[in-house]
Nucleic acid binder design. Structure first.
Lengths: 236, 236
DNA sequence: CATTCTATCTATAAAAT
DNA sequence: TATTTTATAGATAGAAT
């Protein structure tokens, strides 16, 4: 407070709390903006409140994307002294690559939404490449198996549609899937498409009216190297 | 400034800039903390500066994770009035599911690192499920193909190792892959493993000394529904 | 450089509209 | 309830150490 000293506790009065939220949020955003200007640092903030249906971000979705992109340059793996543990090294390398990829794709997904559809485009291209590779793997296995006397040991039950990266718990309910009209693209089996067709399929899935798909921000790749650096200044 | 009024511009003097950065960052964290307490809202902030090797986060990595988890509850798709465009609806549904999944996996990846390994565990379980499904798909196709006269139309060239979600551009360089010792787990072909073995493989890949793998924060699923809500208060 | 001090600027709680 | 006003708490630039 200012006419009174602030009691640092939850404000029970609804309207007072909302008023405080609005004022302080505005102040916070200003402060962040100032800091960013004065020191030329990259920062972002995300705030979720019941007063706005959408989370409030600073400086913008693009800004969030860029801050996170910048983090990519930090870690770069201190692979200078690979003494004797080459295996450990490689394991670490793979691990970091995995994290890098997941981070990359995901932030493109998050930040590309609504603001710059082109970000999704980039992520999609990679996923398309990935699907291509998986298709090749499948084909190769089929080829190999075709050359040997049949030995089908495993039997599967699920359908073969592969929706990029949807684990069962997240997937659209079977009901919805089945109730849809016949011409809907999502009913197609991705594995049965040729690469070009699949690419278009994914593109359409991701964006109904996709403009300037080439736009893209930040470098390629990205890593997120939080350590144990929880800031000691945290109020609580 | 306070002895002088702040000129909102980049501080050219290095030490002055650093001093300002330190002071204002501290202030910002405090403000965020206060807002969070006073209004019981979820918020997070990430700041990247040349003064710290690691990005400064508020309230913590866990906090970031939780803020983002909470966002899951917002959108839930206003599927109330599915007038006639059921196809459009489904396409949208799939799109959202895809985004949900990518967001989920990725933030688990980011935030689980260093602080709570259990978060990775959750993500890994899902990826493992995904791999299971893909294996089944492959098996099914093989079964189907085995029952028909061989018609190998496509020929592939790449090896069949499938490293979860690593597109070519991100992958560890082939050099490194080949130079490694023979016993290293990353040389194994994921597709050749049985589910249990693969699960263990991934677990080991992700964490060398994994404790309390059951810990997990926030609900399942997650969506990130930024709209066009760039805050009008943005300084620039 | 890092800390502490303090004069002054800035943010904002409560009141007024 | 939202906006504007105003008195005061809080943040902080520059100085001192």
């Amino acid at each position: 407070m200012t006419r009174k000293k602030v009691k640092l506790a939850y404000i029970t009065d609804d309207s007072a709390r909302k008023a405080t939220y609005k004022k302080r949020t505005k102040g916070l955003m200003k402060k962040l903006s100032e800091l960013s200007t004065l020191c030329d640092i990259d920062a972002c903030s995300i705030m979720y409140s019941p007063y706005e249906s959408q989370p409030e971000v600073w400086p913008s979705l693009m800004g969030v994307q860029q801050v996170l992109s910048k983090l990519e340059t930090i870690p770069e793996m201190e692979k200078s002294k690979n003494t004797t543990k080459a295996a450990e090294q490689l394991k670490k390398h793979c691990k970091e690559n995995w994290e890098k990829e997941m981070t990359h794709v995901m932030f493109n997904t998050i930040c590309g939404k609504g603001v710059v559809h082109g970000l999704n485009f980039e992520a999609l291209s990679e996923i398309n490449l990935l699907l291509d590779k998986k298709m090749n793997d499948i084909d190769k296995r089929i080829d190999e198996l075709s050359k040997t006397p049949l030995n089908p040991q495993r039997v599967s039950s699920s359908s073969s549609s592969s929706l990029v990266a949807l684990p069962p718990m997240m997937m659209v309910t079977p009901e919805v899937m089945l109730k849809t009209g016949t011409e809907d693209i999502v009913q197609a089996d991705v594995n049965e498409m040729d690469p070009m067709q699949r690419h278009q399929w994914i593109m359409e899935l991701m964006s109904n009216n996709n403009n300037n798909p080439q736009t893209h921000v930040g470098g390629d790749g990205m890593t997120f190297q939080f350590g144990e650096n929880i800031n000691p200044n945290n109020g609580l």
